[in-house]
Write a protein that binds this DNA or RNA. Structure first.
Length: 332
DNA sequence: AAGCGTCAAGGCATG
DNA sequence: CATGCCTTGACGCTT
């Protein structure tokens, strides 16, 4: 069993101590408002160009990750590969048969390469995907967002069996875990095979996501759990056992990040104490932010204990650079 | 070349 | 009720 460490969405390089995006491995973007200012022809040409670029870049990214040592072969693909896929007006572009054919054949290559190179892939619909909203139109839009990801996952040849791919969401919204449970029968089999539920740091924490352990795998975000509760949860904790069991034999994935050292402003070799930080006037909002690198060695030592039972997705500004450093510090 | 304003969507915190 | 923030840069437009 390979123990993996991964990163999210973007490949960067270090140039003169500055983190710099590598264009040919990363996505291009556009905005609805920009598209609306163009002629339909120009706008659709732009979407076509972005689609071509992003699919090529995603393939190159998977190949790049596939060239790393086994334990670093894990990456989250961006949700922005096909911009406006679920937007009210421009979603029509993505229904064109020529567009769908292009997506289908190119995503299929990405999936094939990932499987050949043993790269573990995932995706993560963003904050606007709220399956547990109390507004029906928001739930419906969120369902479409899930199915957008499911289309990409299916084209890549995943979603055929339980957790051959991870598509991670938060509970989101005001209704709570029950809403997630209730909507599952309305989702595609691809979505039901790939969805995972992550605890957040404000509304729905680990105690809430655990209520879904019988129907979906749970992703514990160690940082979110710390921000919400102040706890450095241990691998031996009974709740961790429940999280692990929710994956039904597949090696789980957890998320890991650290507070920004300039916000915490304390020793980098001891565990920050949440209650002391909050008492000193630091807002939880500020503590939510992710650091550039994993500079706190005490927090790293604690997180290391979790690598035994789960692959670790790093959420860092320094992306692949920071996860590589973490791997090097752990692989002595 | 450099600087600045803009960006689909939800929801929470703040005033 | 209205505004700003979260995340976060990348892009396009102006100077």
């Amino acid at each position: 069993m390979v123990k993996r460490i991964g990163f999210a969405c973007k490949w960067v390089k270090n140039t003169n101590n500055r983190i710099e995006s590598v264009a040919e491995l990363n996505n291009r973007v556009t905005t609805v408002s920009w598209l609306n200012r163009q002629t339909k022809l120009d706008a659709e040409q732009r979407l076509w160009d972005i689609m071509q670029h992003n699919l090529t870049a995603s393939l190159q990214l998977v190949k790049k990750v596939g060239s790393l040592t086994d334990q670093l072969r894990m990456v989250r693909l961006s949700s922005d590969i096909l911009p406006m896929y679920t937007e009210g007006v421009w979603s029509t572009f993505w229904k064109r048969p020529d567009v769908r054919n292009y997506c289908e054949s190119n995503f299929s290559i990405i999936g094939e390469v990932a499987r050949n190179l043993n790269v573990r892939l995932s995706m993560h619909p963003g904050q606007f995907c709220c399956l547990s909203s109390d507004r029906t139109e928001v739930v419906e839009n969120s369902r479409l967002e899930i199915e957008y990801h499911s289309d990409m996952i299916r084209w890549m040849g995943y979603g055929k069996s339980w957790q051959d791919f991870k598509c991670n969401i938060h509970v989101g919204g005001r209704v709570g875990p029950t809403a997630i449970r209730n909507i599952l029968p309305k989702l595609s089999s691809t979505a039901r095979n790939t969805l995972t539920i992550e605890n957040d740091e404000i509304s729905w924490g680990l105690d809430d996501t655990l209520k879904l352990a019988d129907c979906l795998p749970l992703v514990i975000d160690l940082h979110h759990h710390f921000i919400k509760t102040g706890e450095y949860i241990l691998p031996s904790d009974a709740r961790i056992t429940k999280v692990k069991d929710s994956w039904r034999g597949i090696r789980p994935v957890i998320h890991y990040s650290q507070c920004r050292p300039d916000v915490v402003n304390s020793s980098l070799s001891s565990l920050p104490d949440l209650s002391i930080l909050v008492a000193s006037g630091i807002k939880k909002q500020q503590l939510r932010g992710h650091s550039e690198y994993f500079t706190n060695s005490a927090v790293n030592s604690w997180a290391y204990g979790h690598w035994n039972w789960a692959d670790i997705m790093c959420e860092l500004k320094s992306k692949n650079l920071g996860s590589q450093l973490l791997y090097e510090s752990w692989n002595i």
